[in-house]
Computed example of a mutant assay.
Amino acid sequence: MFDLPDDDTLYQALLDRSPAYEGQAWVCVSSTGIFCRLTCPAPKPKRQNVHFRASPGECLAEGFRACKRCHPLQAAAESDPAVTSLLQALEKRPDHRWSEADIQALGHDPSTIRRAFRRQFGMTFLDLARQRRLRHGFASLAEGGKVIDAQLEAGFDSPSAFRAAFARLLGIPPADLKGDGALRADWIATPLGDMVAVSSAHALHLLEFVGRQALQRELQRLAKGAKGDIGIGTFAPTEQLKSELSAYFAGASADFQTPLALHGTPFYRQVWAELQRIPPGETRSYGELARAIGRPTAMRAVAQANGANQLALVIPCHRVIGADGSMTGYGGGLWRKQKLLEVEVGYRRSA
């Protein structure tokens, strides 16, 4: 994590419009209620009217609006030519087994690229490329292909390496996933990274970002509950979810109506129901959630219920922040939590 220097240093960078802290610090201006990049061309505010934060999410949580001149909510990746060029290269060669030598051949320093991708996406470029290859293997299995076909589609020379990478990501070997399971897993691409959805014929059981540490355990628990009857494919709830996710990220609707199967205690379900009552564009603290369900001293239990949610976005646990307005833990990564809150600013304005 990046440690911010003192406010005087950042204020001087603001006056100089220095790009040194681009993507690492933002300025909140109390006299206008606006937050900006340090490189913003707008007239500079007085020192006593500013404070600095390490993410746009923190600024949003404190009630500041994004500046219309420097657009601080625009993905920083869009302004990083190195990141942009590598993403374009990945799109052209998604099945290629990328290495640091490839990164160097494109004229980039691997260590710089590693830091840039971790800052923007929570993973390295090589992790992103490996995940993309596994997506192709998953798609091959979903279409009824054999494991060997999925392995070749994903660009793995070794069957054992493919099985190990697949199991490491999902917690279930590819051969254990059937095409006609009572529960079916599907891979969904989103602007914030790939997600795995698991549905039955009647309800959505799981929706998580690929790479979440708890994903393996959650899938294994679902498989055990279904007595191993879990496969790859799609049911009507997954198709409905895909449509709703597209509308959500397009800024058209944050209303999720996909039927849900909730795997949790009555207390957990009570917390999750309260999470669903938080309007998009708003946040709550754990203390506020505890008071809302009539259990004001149960903040720790509320936090545990929040972390046990395995229906990301649909049950919006990303809308919970610290009592001081700070960004708190999120299984999908704090960078995603920040981006989700940024996406929902538009919904708050519409409301």
Rank of each mutant, 00 (worst) to 15 (best):
W98C: 00
P259L: 03
P41S: 06
V198L: 09
T265L: 11
L4D: 04
F125Q: 02
A54D: 11
S18N: 08
E274Q: 10
F256S: 00
E244C: 05
A54Q: 13
Y248E: 09
L341W: 02
D157C: 11
S85K: 11
I148W: 00
G137R: 05
K337L: 09
C70F: 14
G251T: 03
G322E: 07
Q74A: 07
P41T: 03
G294V: 03
G331Q: 10
Q257I: 15
G33R: 12
Y330N: 07
P41K: 08
M327T: 13
I113W: 01
I34M: 13
W272L: 02
G122F: 00
Q104P: 01
A20F: 14
P259F: 06
R217P: 06
K339M: 05
G332D: 03
S18D: 06
T265H: 12
S140N: 09
A261K: 13
L15C: 10
H318A: 02
S85A: 05
D95T: 12
E58Y: 14
M299A: 05
A164L: 13
P173D: 00
R300C: 05
G193D: 01
S79I: 00
E342G: 10
M123I: 08
R114Q: 02
L10R: 07
W187C: 09
Y330R: 07
D3W: 15
K178W: 15
P316R: 13
L204S: 07
A290Q: 03
A82M: 08
F52W: 10
S326E: 11
L260F: 12
G231T: 02
M1W: 14
L341H: 08
M299P: 06
A165T: 05
H263C: 14
S111C: 01
L152H: 15
R17L: 03
P316N: 07
A254K: 11
F249W: 06
R114C: 00
Q240D: 12
I293Q: 01
A54C: 03
R221F: 12
G145Y: 13
A308L: 10
S253M: 08
E244V: 12
E342L: 06
P259V: 01
A201W: 15
A250R: 04
R53H: 07
D194I: 10
L60K: 11
L15K: 15
A247Q: 09
S160F: 13
E218L: 11
H318K: 09
E58Q: 14
A54E: 15
P279Q: 08
L222G: 03
A129C: 05
G228D: 08
